[in-house]
Nucleic acid binder design. Structure first.
Lengths: 169, 169
DNA sequence: GGTTGTCCTGGAGTCGACTCCAGGAGATAC
DNA sequence: GTATCTCCTGGAGTCGACTCCAGGACAACC
């Protein structure tokens, strides 16, 4: 079973141009051509391309993915290098996830800020009276809110957010 | 207490150029100038800039952040719009986190693939004998591995990964 | 009064990852 | 036999978010 570039694009949810761009960039050296010069993709090629797309989703640059593909072409002697490369990107990815979770907890704080302000009809409930400055220890009030609604414990259970308050900027 | 652009850059961990770029882009209309035209930042400005940086971390574009700041300038009538805007970005952010977690589980599968291949000294243990094609139901073997090492249950507990196998491409 | 340091502006350049385009070639449909 | 479709190439253009640069101003120290 083989596929044309259009069918592959459809299957993988990317554009034809993107596939050609990846090919130009050296990510698809394994793809064969037919008599009239058109690309012919096998099921195995699709497997590999899914790995490429996965690495891309993990935030790996096209240049780094190219390195990975080169290693693959060199055969079994590079197995360990490829493993290490994936491990490195796993570390990056974990960092990205943690960062986004931190951002999420800040966003939730801000949502609480606007919810309470909307309820009060004015943002000034969060300001130092007579000024336009936000109360400095609004954190503590938010903590009380989290405790009251039983969300604090849940938040603290987040394995990789040791102290959400430290991370909330 | 006020700060110069250099001090703010230091405090927020961004470059001076980035701050000026944000100012040009309309993200910092609240920042005042002194007699000789230099920017003067207050503690309150820093608060706001942290929110801006948080939104940026959440993947919000500069254009969208600009909208948020504009709404803020319009006062209390826009409180609800600002809340909705944050909610929308929370949804995006949750999607991003879920996607990264899926990518992570695929990456872990690939690591297992290379670990076992390295242990065997050759990648061919994952190929259909006599070919260069990956065994199609390698998934199941990986499942067995996860079960044996007690990781499957843990993986399934991931709230937002309903079926990690569906998502692993 | 010269050097150094931090700031200012407008505008050009960069980078990654596409995305689009012109011009052309086989295959298929009517 | 011509219109339509899908494919090909090289190369130019785009987009967002910076990043850098030239040329200049003020302040502070020596």
């Amino acid at each position: 079973m083989t596929y044309s570039i259009g069918q592959v694009a459809e299957k993988l949810g990317v554009t034809i141009d993107t596939i050609r761009y990846y090919d130009k960039a050296g990510l698809l050296p394994f793809v064969q051509r037919n008599e009239i010069g058109r690309r012919v993709f096998t099921d195995n090629d699709l497997h590999l391309m899914r790995t490429i797309i996965c690495l891309k989703n993990a935030g790996v640059s096209v240049a780094d993915i190219s390195t990975f593909i080169d290693l693959r072409l060199q055969g079994d002697t590079t197995l360990d290098q490829r493993y290490q490369l994936l491990r490195d990107h796993e570390r990056d990815l974990q960092q990205q996830i943690t960062d986004l979770q931190d951002t999420m907890s800040y966003l939730k704080f801000k949502e609480w800020y606007y919810q309470t302000a909307t309820a009060a009809g004015t943002e000034t409930i969060h300001f130092v009276p007579g000024t336009n400055e936000v109360i400095t220890d609004l954190d503590q009030e938010y903590d009380r809110h989290l405790t009251e609604t039983g969300q604090l414990a849940e938040l603290k259970r987040f394995a990789n957010v040791k102290d959400y308050r430290l991370r909330r900027h």
